[in-house]
Simulated assay, not measured.
Amino acid sequence: MALANSNGVKLYVESTGSGTPIVFVHEFAGDHRNWENQVRFFSRRFRCITYNARGYPPSEVPESIEDYGQSHSVEDIANVMRHCGVKNAHIVGLSMGGYATVNFGIAHPDMARSLVIAGAGHGSDPEKREQFLLDSAELAERLVTLGMQEGIVHYANSAIRRRYKEKDPRGFEEFNRQFAEHSALGSSLTTRGYQMRRSTIYELETKLKGMSVPSMIVTGDDDEPCLAPALFMKRTIPDARLWVVPRTTHPVNLEEPDVFNRVVLDFVTEIDQKAMG
Score class of each variant (00 low, 15 high):
residue 2 A to L: 03
residue 4 A to P: 09
residue 5 N to F: 01
residue 9 V to N: 09
residue 10 K to A: 02
residue 14 E to P: 07
residue 14 E to A: 08
residue 14 E to V: 09
residue 15 S to A: 05
residue 17 G to M: 00
residue 19 G to P: 14
residue 20 T to R: 12
residue 27 E to M: 05
residue 31 D to R: 12
residue 32 H to E: 09
residue 33 R to N: 07
residue 34 N to Q: 11
residue 34 N to V: 10
residue 36 E to A: 05
residue 37 N to Q: 13
residue 37 N to W: 12
residue 37 N to V: 11
residue 39 V to C: 08
residue 41 F to I: 06
residue 41 F to C: 13
residue 42 F to H: 02
residue 42 F to L: 02
residue 43 S to H: 03
residue 45 R to P: 14
residue 46 F to V: 01
residue 47 R to D: 09
residue 49 I to A: 04
residue 49 I to P: 06
residue 49 I to K: 00
residue 54 R to G: 04
residue 55 G to Q: 14
residue 57 P to I: 01
residue 58 P to R: 00
residue 58 P to W: 09
residue 61 V to R: 10
residue 64 S to C: 02
residue 65 I to N: 08
residue 65 I to E: 06
residue 67 D to W: 12
residue 69 G to Y: 03
residue 69 G to P: 03
residue 74 V to T: 06
residue 75 E to F: 01
residue 77 I to G: 05
residue 78 A to C: 10
residue 78 A to M: 10
residue 79 N to E: 10
residue 79 N to H: 10
residue 79 N to P: 09
residue 79 N to C: 10
residue 82 R to T: 03
residue 84 C to G: 05
residue 85 G to R: 01
residue 87 K to C: 07
residue 87 K to R: 03
residue 92 V to A: 00
residue 93 G to P: 03
residue 94 L to N: 00
residue 94 L to C: 01
residue 95 S to E: 01
residue 97 G to E: 03
residue 97 G to I: 06
residue 98 G to E: 04
residue 98 G to M: 04
residue 100 A to E: 08
residue 103 N to S: 11
residue 103 N to P: 06
residue 105 G to R: 00
residue 106 I to N: 11
residue 107 A to F: 10
residue 108 H to S: 14
residue 109 P to M: 04
residue 113 R to S: 15
residue 113 R to I: 15
residue 115 L to S: 11
residue 119 G to F: 07
residue 120 A to K: 02
residue 121 G to P: 09
residue 121 G to Q: 02
residue 122 H to M: 14
residue 123 G to V: 15
residue 127 E to C: 05
residue 128 K to G: 13
residue 128 K to S: 14
residue 137 A to E: 11
residue 138 E to H: 12
residue 139 L to C: 07
residue 141 E to T: 13
residue 142 R to Y: 12
residue 147 G to L: 14
residue 147 G to D: 10
residue 147 G to A: 09
residue 147 G to M: 05
residue 148 M to G: 12
residue 149 Q to E: 15
residue 152 I to G: 06
residue 156 A to M: 10
residue 160 I to H: 07
residue 160 I to L: 09
residue 161 R to I: 06
residue 163 R to W: 14
residue 164 Y to G: 14
residue 169 P to L: 13
residue 170 R to L: 04
residue 171 G to R: 10
residue 171 G to W: 13
residue 173 E to K: 07
residue 178 Q to T: 01
residue 178 Q to F: 03
residue 179 F to T: 05
residue 183 S to L: 13
residue 185 L to N: 08
residue 186 G to T: 11
residue 189 L to A: 11
residue 190 T to A: 14
residue 193 G to P: 07
residue 199 S to T: 12
residue 205 E to P: 13
residue 205 E to Y: 10
residue 209 K to V: 06
residue 210 G to Y: 03
residue 211 M to N: 08
residue 215 S to M: 04
residue 216 M to I: 04
residue 217 I to M: 12
residue 218 V to C: 07
residue 218 V to E: 05
residue 219 T to I: 00
residue 219 T to L: 03
residue 222 D to Y: 12
residue 223 D to V: 09
residue 224 E to C: 08
residue 230 A to P: 03
residue 237 I to F: 10
residue 238 P to T: 02
residue 241 R to T: 01
residue 243 W to L: 11
residue 245 V to E: 01
residue 249 T to Q: 14
residue 250 H to N: 00
residue 251 P to N: 03
residue 256 E to G: 08
residue 257 P to D: 14
residue 259 V to I: 15
residue 260 F to C: 01
residue 260 F to R: 02
residue 260 F to H: 01
residue 262 R to Y: 14
residue 263 V to M: 09
residue 265 L to W: 04
residue 267 F to R: 00
residue 269 T to M: 15
residue 271 I to K: 15
residue 273 Q to S: 15
residue 276 M to I: 15
